[in-house]
Design a binder for these strands. Structure first.
Length: 646
RNA sequence: GCUGAUGUAGCUCAGCCGGCAGAGCAGCUGAUUUGUAAUCAGCAGGUCGUGGGUUCGAUCCCCACCAUCAGCUCCA
């Protein structure tokens, strides 16, 4: 089932990085119109290059990412053109191509209703039918500005004013509609035969919450209806795999309005999976030289003042007590580091103690803003296997490598090793308030991290402004069913907190030094990992993770006793078993066990009871025939040991 | 926090222009004792998210709040 857990892109295109609002609209692509281009296969306004498809008359290849992007970029202009026709007072912002579609941001009074979208789609149909040629032209800055002022487009004027001095200022015109745009576009609106406006949303102008919120319309477009329908069907399929839906259906978790947002209840089956994962993680960490700690869930503000959380993370914390009223303030912990450092500080350390690897399965509390919560992916309380490694500079690379190796081992074990991407998260030097420490320390830590990443040969993207407040991170991200990426694992290098907490070691030469601290997680943000696993396996977990591994299905009431015996035998051997002893027909019991996604069903009637055997049914493969119970337990046992994927 | 949508039985969903709340599945009871994806019948189940307001009368209209979803911003 390739592309596990994704919205399949029907054209197998390389995925773009997660959308950043400002990205494509104004990348000046220093462009000249493709000379003599004819037909809508040609991309208009790209850097001179060999035609993607071999010649002006060749059919364009929608699988080609540059053509597809130009195609959808033109679709976004068709959208904007339709909106301007229907709502002339609307101001245009930006309208880039994104993965699987496009959007356009408008400054529009009120919002776009579903009826509005239908009307806009109808208008777009007309624009497509009218076969407008798309023309590109450039203007000097002053004229470009004048044109946009004349058209009453303040956002476009602002964009022009922010363009670098040497940028070509290009426009694209189709019919009566002209838009400031870097392109590229296809040459005729008629190619956009199949499209759909998929949703509306608010989005801040230029991605800053200080700015006005604009109305965004999302859509997607394809050369023909068949491809559009295939895409929409894939989106529907992804919804069926959504952990938030499946996880509730399978009774893994639930939420309760009057408990609050981001505070899921893990039901017995969900809790069981998390327990299995947690034991697996802790055992592996112990094998790799980590020592387990258990530290408090809250602390006085004093601790967070030392760590920097009080000044740089307070909005993210649940604080009890108000210092401004002279009360003692306590805060629930949003991270484990300042607590675990106390273990290091408990006695004086020497270089011989390093590296010191401390792990803890800790429950953390973060006061996420109210619009952020989502199923098990974004919650306010979660449990994570964190570790902090204190080491010397020469040990750092080795330790970092060890963290990455552990992360990969675990991802491979649970089956999340595909769909992984690496992000090197750096600080934003223009936003000093967010971070502790001076630029020299940041530069040093980031340079070192980059060097290590490059030594490891990782294929990563860099992200400015994504660092933790105390240091840069390597974020290991996993795509969910909807194609969105979430950080599951992070490895961070910290040059700062050891000094703040006075953590030292005596080196060989007798001098005191601060250790470097590596902060790392594993797959052990258990709620999020569970969410991703639900989506990965569509709820049908591998046997080693399945909350119920075997369902016993006695044919009739008289077989219940035999079923109980078999259940007891299986439980003795550590298997997770349920028995369906209802007075129902076997077909119904099987159907329900299948829907519960239990890996194995054991059907037992007179034949099996008489011969001490079981009729094995695999959820995936159906009836496997009758066999002695031991044969089945051998099979299941090895599947569990080997962590076989379904 | 911001924009928008949504909230009816445990679940999935009907419920017109304001006039006593409906189905299927699940549950319970009875019958059936069943051989690889749904046996039949009956019963029970709802302060229509919560709190205000308008109205003779509110699931329906208005306001606030809570929660969920799609995004934005933020983030494991």
């Amino acid at each position: 089932m390739g592309g596990l857990g994704l919205v399949p892109d029907p054209h197998g295109g390389r995925r773009a990085p997660r959308v950043r609002a400002l990205r494509p609209a104004l990348d000046p692509v220093g462009a000249a119109p493709t000379a003599g281009a004819a037909g809508h296969g040609i991309i208009l306004g790209t850097k001179p290059q060999t035609p993607a498809t071999g010649g002006p008359d060749a059919m364009p290849d929608f699988a080609d990412a540059s053509y597809r992007d130009a195609f959808r970029h033109t679709a976004s202009h068709i959208l904007a053109q339709a909106v301007k026709r229907l709502y002339p007072e609307t101001k245009l912002a930006i309208g880039p191509t994104i993965e699987n579609g496009f959007y356009y941001d408008f400054d529009h009074d009120g919002s776009f209703t579903p009826e509005d979208l239908t009307a806009i789609e109808a208008e777009m149909e007309k624009i497509v039918r009218d076969h407008y040629m798309v023309e590109r032209f450039e203007l000097p800055r002053a004229e470009a500005r004048a044109l946009m002022l004349e058209k009453g487009e303040p956002y476009k004027v602002e964009l022009i004013d922010d363009l670098p001095a040497d940028a070509a200022i290009s426009f694209y015109k189709q019919g009566e509609f002209t838009d400031l745009c870097a392109g590229p576009h296809i040459q005729n609106t008629s190619a956009v035969r199949a499209f759909k406006l998929t949703s509306t949303a608010g989005a801040y102008w230029r991605g800053s919450e200080k700015n006005k919120m604009l109305q965004r319309i999302y859509g997607t477009a394809f050369p023909d209806k068949k491809q559009l329908d295939a895409y929409l069907a894939a989106v529907e399929e992804a919804k069926r795999r959504d952990h938030n839906k499946l996880g509730r259906e399978l009774k893994l978790f639930t939420t309760v309005d009057y408990i609050g947002q981001g505070l899921p209840i893990l039901m017995p089956k969900g809790a069981k999976i998390i327990q299995i994962l947690q034991r697996f993680v802790e055992d592996e960490e112990e094998r790799r030289g980590y020592q387990l700690t258990k530290t408090p869930f809250m602390a006085k503000s004093d601790l967070y003042k030392i760590s920097g959380h009080w000044d740089h993370y307070r909005d993210g914390m649940f604080v009890i007590g108000d210092e401004s009223k002279g009360e003692e303030a306590l805060a629930l912990r949003p991270m484990t580091c300042p607590f675990q450092f106390q273990v290091y500080l408990n006695e004086s350390r020497s270089y011989r103690d390093l590296p010191m690897r401390l792990n803890e399965t800790s429950t953390l509390f973060r006061n996420e803003s109210s619009g952020e919560m989502h199923g098990l992916i974004r919650v306010r309380q979660f449990t994570i296997s964190e570790a902090h490694i204190a080491c010397t500079p020469d040990q750092l690379e080795e330790e970092f490598r060890g963290c990455l190796d552990l992360a990969r081992f675990m991802l491979e074990a649970v089956g999340l090793d595909e769909d992984v991407s690496y992000r090197f998260s750096k600080w934003d030097p223009n936003n000093r308030d967010k971070y502790i420490g001076d630029p020299e320390k940041w530069d040093a830590a980031q340079a070192l991290m980059k060097q290590i990443l490059d030594h490891l040969g990782l294929d990563y993207v860099e992200a400015e402004g994504e660092a933790a407040f105390y240091g840069p991170k390597l974020d290991i991200q996993i795509r969910n069913v909807h194609g969105k990426e979430d950080t599951l694992i992070t490895v961070q290098i910290d040059f700062q907190l050891a000094e703040r907490f006075g953590m030292e070691y005596t080196d060989r030469d007798g001098t005191k030094k601060n250790p470097i601290v590596v902060h790392r997680t594993s797959i052990g943000c258990y709620e999020r990992t569970l969410a991703l696993l639900i989506e990965k396996y569509a709820g049908a977990f591998p046997a080693w993770l399945a909350p119920v591994q075997v369902k016993l299905l006695p044919i009739a009431e008289r077989h219940a006793e035999y079923a109980e015996k078999v259940a007891a035998r299986l439980r003795e051997q550590g298997f997770r078993v349920e028995t369906d002893a209802r007075e129902e027909k076997i077909g119904k019991k099987i159907r329900e066990a299948q829907l519960e996604k239990v890996p194995y069903m054991l059907v037992m009637g007179d034949k099996e009871a008489d011969s001490a055997t079981v009729a094995v049914r695999s959820r995936r493969e159906g009836d496997l025939g009758t066999m002695p119970l031991d044969d089945f337990t051998d099979k299941l046992g090895s599947e569990v040991r080997m962590r076989v994927r379904p």
